[in-house]
Amino acid sequence: MDEALEVGDKLDTGADKVQERLQKRHQARIEDVERRKEAKESQSVAEEKGEYFYSAFNKERAAVEELLSGCSGADRATMTHRLEEATDRIGQLQKFLNDSVLFLTQYDLRQAQAALQKLQSTLAEMREDALPKKKFAFKVRTKAADKASVTPAPNPDADTPAAAGGTKRDGATASEQYGFSNMSDVLVTRTAEEIQKQDVLLTHLTNCKVRLLGSPSTLHLKHIDSCEILCGPVSSSVFIDHCRNSTLAFPCQQLRTHHTTDTQVYLHVTSRAIIEDCRGVSFAPFSWSYPSLEEDFSVSGLDKNRNNWNQVDDFNWLAAGTPSPNWMVIPEADRKTNWDTEN
């Protein structure tokens, strides 16, 4: 940080400085190779994980099915108890699935999600048949946040499932911004129930891969370096400041990009994208996909058929006629097409 200053200050140690910097660069290169090796290894681990996921998921699913089918004919107290246990276990199953998203194929993910949804609707039906509606806010929740009924809050320590989806959650999020910061070299996945309708803020991320599988209200990215950030449909604006050397993908209503360099944006924007104080920002149409993308599009209210991804206004280049040198369209041949298999 103060390197320039130091060099200026003590000219006599200039040679040492250069030496030191070379050493640092060499170290960085070695680390880079290491990192790549690790990435490769984690790929094969991923395949094993997929196997493990499958057997564990199916085993638990079968157990919950059995629990539910054993409910008919039981007395009220037993029934209540069992339904709550089932709710809990389905919640955990959902969490398990969410945590496994990164190494599952799209097909597997969809299968698992469908299986979960089936369990949930069975559970909901049984609850409705068996128990007075007043006692559980489940129905209310289904109405209030349709998404939440598909993916219940994985909140095992909440007293009742109703509390987890209802007042408790609202209370916890009131005037709290959702997001994370100061991370490097990690994969982060967030699901709809965590980010839906939230204003999401991500700051100081380096060399991270982020998947936001849901529809936030807004998304702010600040101080992002060498990351891949993919996000579901954002109902209003995405605001980016100080981002470099990264790949981003999302649908949104407006994109506002500041102080950003050498970054690719795979964009669906229904009004306009703008850049200010940017260099080397390139755009292509949004092409990432995930299982609930369609649903999230409708949650966001964005028009799927209206994409102005290549109409970018540069606030530092308002000369009509000549195109801004600060952004460009990614040539078709160079566009990323494979999002999920590459790791």
Binding site: Q253, Q254, R256, T270, S271, R272, I274, G301, D303, D313, F315, L318
Partner: peptide
């Protein structure tokens, strides 16, 4: 309000 762009 869904079609509003950043104001130039």
């Amino acid at each position: 309000v869904s079609t509003i762009s950043p104001t130039l």
